[in-house]
Design a protein around this nucleic acid. Structure first.
Lengths: 199, 199
DNA sequence: ACATTTGCCTAACACTGTTAGAAAAATTAC
DNA sequence: GTAATTTTTCTAACAGTGTTAGGCAAATGT
């Protein structure tokens, strides 16, 4: 039947509507406020329908984290392509990461939060590796070496990530961090690590 | 009545039993598995009784974070008093912080986790300031100055905290971090920041 | 011995995620 | 076009959550 296409199309549409609804609730009220029934209300179906598109709530949220990683990857690509020098690229990429975290507070917490469900985080989210790989590459370039040793890049990567993610976490929880402190600490740390990498 | 004392004593006891039960559940099954009914089961009362000791679940958990801060503060004091040199003290204190996070995974997440309830974190947890102040002091000493400027200490403190907390968070979520990576990144970062402070 | 306070429990409300099975709608077969 | 079948959707329920109102019974005060 030719109507099979149409049916598939509206099924895809409904699936997307579910994701959109969930994202809207999460962004507006936080993930603790997200419920299957609220999603059902928005898409104008009854709750069980959602289970025809997602195995359960956790699977649904995992899908949302993938959306998050795609946005982050896109942002970071733009940041990278604005510069030629690896050190400038790296700086801008981490700044972009930082900005993403606050522009998409809830989404960031879903992706990197401690408590939230998606804790297994094996390789079930391949999207998560795109931003990571982008950073890796640029760190590699920055060393100036032909074949930079894996574990050196790895170490620098984790150092970067720790500072940035740590600073973000602290800010997301504690909203009393002195004004201007963040930018300074962030930039200091980034340039500091970059300096330690450059040949 | 002399029995008033006894009554107060068993009331204190029950309160402590509630906290103990909650802690036990949290440590064993994670905070998402903590429920008022489970606590009630353990202390062999019905759920409403708990509300005579704590306003609600959130208040109860806030109390648990205070317990966490007291443990952390105690550990850190011991670490500090093992050394004379400020740089050694600082190093050991952060290492202790690190060890605490993994020895008390669940508790750490309750204290510093992003998702969990206790997100207001104004000054409702004075205990939280003890470990922070201890670090501040030693950073101050390390500068070698008479009156070290507030914002310099503040900046170093946040840099320290970011790296350590970030690294911990990453490890608590992602259990695939390469072996030996953590210690190296941690020690490198700590000694790096210390070097930048020393006169 | 009676009155009052205290401690504790039962029952309920309004939620949550999730599932089984009935009803309705659309599709296919004749 | 009607009948059978498949697909889609809903209703109702289960087991769990935090929290509260109201009542029973035991301990206390007079």
């Amino acid at each position: 039947m030719a109507s099979a296409d149409r049916k598939q199309r509206i099924k895809d549409e409904t699936r997307q509507n579910i994701l959109d609804a969930a994202m809207r609730i999460g962004r507006a009220e936080g993930w603790q406020a997200l419920s299957m029934r609220k999603i059902a209300d928005i898409i104008e179906y009854t709750p069980p329908v959602i289970y025809e598109y997602f195995a359960n709530k956790e699977a649904l949220m995992l899908e949302l984290t993938k959306v998050g990683y795609r946005i982050l990857a896109k942002d970071m690509k733009i940041a990278r392509d604005k510069h030629q020098l690896p050190e400038k690229q790296l700086e801008d990429m981490w700044l972009t990461y930082w900005n993403f975290a606050f522009a998409e507070k809830e989404l960031y917490q879903l992706m990197f939060g401690i408590e939230v469900n998606c804790c297994v985080w094996d390789n079930s989210v391949p999207e998560a590796e795109i931003p990571a790989n982008m950073i890796w590459e640029v760190i590699g370039e920055l060393t100036g070496m032909e074949n930079p040793p894996e574990d050196l890049i790895c170490k620098r990567y984790y150092t970067f990530w720790s500072v940035v993610h740590g600073l973000i976490s602290i800010n997301l929880v504690r909203q009393g961090v002195p004004e201007g402190m963040n930018e300074e600490v962030l930039k200091d740390a980034i340039t500091g690590i970059i300096r330690s990498i450059k040949p």
